Each structure stands twice: as structure tokens, then as C-alpha cells.
Amino acid sequence: MSRLDSMLRRLTAQRDGLNWAAEQITDVPGDALDMGLGNGRTYDHLREILPDRRIWVIDRVLQCHPSCVPPEKDFLQGEAEPMLQRLATEGHKIVLAHYDFGFGVKEKDVAEAATMSPVIASVMAPGGIIVSGQPLVGFEELDGPEGIPEGRYMFYRA
């Protein structure tokens, strides 16, 4: 498979997974969280599918497309662990989280996801859904929507 085809498959899985997750949490109160803003594509999609929810964003730097800059009050700039701890301490509960942190080195990304899992759990509302490009630990793994190849995206319930 070409890298272009692989990227298209990943982005389609991400979009379909986020849409599916949004349908799962319609009756669960709480906020959304995008971990890893990047250029803002996912955040922009979350704004579209969750127009009535507050969407928190965590990233080390703000370098997204100008049309995707989150409100200053919702952007937590810095390392993820203290930002998640801040959300937990302030009592925010997340019903839909998207995990997209990584270094681009599979072993390192998997290790970081495992390390971050308990901190992510601390902000999740019971029944909340996590959509992740990396395997997380300590959550109930879900099948997710049909059509997404196994391992392409992972889905969890808090």
C-alpha cells in the first residue's frame, strides 16, 4: 500500500471513528478533549460534530491552521500530563477524547500512550469514549464502527 493510500485510510478511519464516538455520547454530559492539536483538522471536525460541547485542546505548541485556533480559554499549552492533571483538579469531565500524541516512532508512541493512560482516565466521565491512534491501557476496549481495519484506530470506554 502506498503511503498516500495509507494516509487516506488513516484519515477516513479517524473521521468515521470520531463520528461514531459522537453518536455514542449524546446522552452523557461533559466536555470533549483533543490531545494533540497539530494542524487542527481533528479539532475542526470535533467543532462540527459537537457544536454544543466545550472542546479542550492540549498541545505543546500552537501551530495549527489559522481557521482552527481554539479559544484561548480552551487551549492548554504544555506537556500533556500537567494539563490533564489541571483538568482533573478543576473537576472537568470528558465524554469524548481523541488521543493523537506521538513521536512517529511506534515503540516510543506505544510506551507514551501506556504511561498517559492513567492520567487520561482521571479526566474521563464514566461511559466516556476515547478514540486513539495508539493502544491505551486500563480502559474497556470497544469494537468501534464497522469498516475500520483492526489496529488502525482503537476505541475505548472509560
Rank of each mutant, 00 (worst) to 15 (best):
134 Q>A: 15
10 R>M: 07
107 E>P: 10
2 S>M: 05
82 P>E: 15
19 N>L: 05
59 D>V: 08
151 G>Y: 00
134 Q>M: 13
148 I>R: 01
117 S>L: 08
15 R>G: 13
79 E>V: 10
153 Y>W: 08
17 G>C: 02
86 R>Q: 15
94 I>P: 03
71 P>E: 14
25 I>W: 11
8 L>Y: 04
28 V>T: 14
81 E>W: 11
83 M>P: 05
110 V>A: 13
22 A>L: 07
155 F>E: 06
154 M>V: 04
49 I>K: 02
63 Q>S: 15
130 I>L: 13
118 P>D: 08
8 L>M: 12
127 G>V: 00
149 P>E: 14
74 D>K: 09
138 G>H: 12
61 V>C: 10
120 I>W: 05
77 Q>P: 09
140 E>W: 03
2 S>I: 03
154 M>K: 13
92 H>M: 01
102 G>A: 00
111 A>F: 05
129 I>R: 00
5 D>C: 05
125 A>D: 09
140 E>K: 15
158 A>C: 07
75 F>C: 10
60 R>T: 12
104 G>R: 05
29 P>T: 01
8 L>H: 05
54 R>S: 14
84 L>E: 03
25 I>L: 07
151 G>A: 09
12 T>E: 07
156 Y>L: 04
28 V>W: 01
35 M>S: 14
44 D>T: 12
62 L>Q: 12
24 Q>P: 03
17 G>T: 02
59 D>K: 00
80 A>E: 07
43 Y>F: 14
135 P>K: 14
16 D>Y: 00
118 P>A: 10
131 V>C: 13
23 E>M: 09
146 E>Y: 08
139 F>M: 13
111 A>Q: 14
28 V>I: 15
1 M>C: 04
20 W>C: 02
144 G>R: 02
33 L>F: 06
150 E>D: 14
151 G>I: 06
4 L>R: 13
145 P>E: 00
31 D>L: 00
